[in-house]
């Protein structure tokens, strides 16, 4: 499994890739429709936060829900300006 020591040996880009590959199926299980976008949003957070989410389903779920709210607010703003 994914440990901080494994991550520290990889380049920053590779670290995000490794975290993304593990987060994506979990995000997809919670929110199937926007999982690519939500995973991308989560990957902008600190790696330590991402590792915590991988170990804590409640943390991941609440962050995914927050991402959905942020996306919906953003999309609502987009359409109101068109």
């Amino acid at each position: 499994d994914l440990k901080a020591t494994v991550l520290s040996a990889a380049s920053p880009g590779e670290q995000k890739e490794m975290l993304g590959e593990r987060l994506f199926p979990l995000v997809q299980a919670i929110q199937p429709t926007m999982s690519n976008k939500i995973t991308g949003m989560l990957l902008e957070l600190e790696n330590s936060e991402l590792l915590h989410m991988l170990e804590s389903p409640e943390s991941l779920r609440s962050m995914v829900e927050e991402a959905v709210e942020v996306l919906q607010a953003h999309q609502a703003m987009d359409t109101s300006y068109k």
Binding site: E17, G20, E21, L23, F24, N36, K37, T39, G40, M41, L42, L43, E44, L45, M63, E66, A67, E69, V70, L71, A73, H74, Q75
Partner: peptide, 21 residues
């Protein structure tokens, strides 16, 4: 509460799904 999440973030496309080996 202000969110730290950025709605303009780049989408993540997993290698394992995009290119099955």
């Amino acid at each position: 509460r202000k969110s730290t999440l950025n709605p303009n973030a780049k989408e993540f496309n997993p290698r394992s799904y995009a290119q099955p080996k």
